[in-house]
């Protein structure tokens, strides 16, 4: 996974530019121009497939990873707060939704898909561990 991992951004070039011009531009810019236009989809079928897989991977990171993160956060915070169930759920779910949105945005703004997964997966695992560690906290 390398430079293809970046996301489609709006077409910075007029669509009339030839493909070689696009390549040139891609080299000039630090961020590669994505292969989202119909030209390139047909021109470079393999990279197009790769690109789609990367997008799918990021989407999964956003939807599933973000969901896992939100759930882990809710449970961890809910157990930390030491409140009755409904109160704990209500209190900790509210920031969790914001975290979910942030995770989705992160999944598509990280420079590579691997980073997108790590940025969501690591905190989710840490929170899950915290939640697991708090599971046997004695009832007060």
């Amino acid at each position: 996974m390398g430079r293809f991992l970046s996301l489609p951004s709006p077409p910075v070039t007029p669509a009339s530019l030839t493909q070689s011009n696009r390549r040139l531009l891609r080299n000039i810019e630090s961020k590669p121009v994505p292969s989202s236009s119909p030209h390139q989809r047909h021109g470079a079928r393999r990279s197009s497939l790769h690109h789609r897989l990367v997008v799918a991977s990021r989407a999964l990171a956003a939807i599933l990873g973000g969901y896992g993160l939100a759930t882990a956060f809710t449970v961890a915070l809910g157990r930390l707060l030491d409140l009755p169930r409904d109160e704990a759920l209500n209190t900790s779910a509210m920031p969790a939704f914001l975290l979910y949105v942030a995770a989705a945005v992160w999944a598509f703004s990280a420079s590579t898909a691997t980073k997108a997964w790590l940025g969501i997966g690591l905190p989710a695992c840490a929170l899950a561990l915290l939640a697991w560690w708090l599971r046997s906290a004695p009832a007060t």
Binding site: A70, V75, G78, R79, D82, L83, R85, A88, A96, A131
Partner: peptide, 9 residues
Amino acid sequence: AAKLLTPAK
């Protein structure tokens, strides 16, 4: 999350 928080306290 609701299920996991249920036995809490």
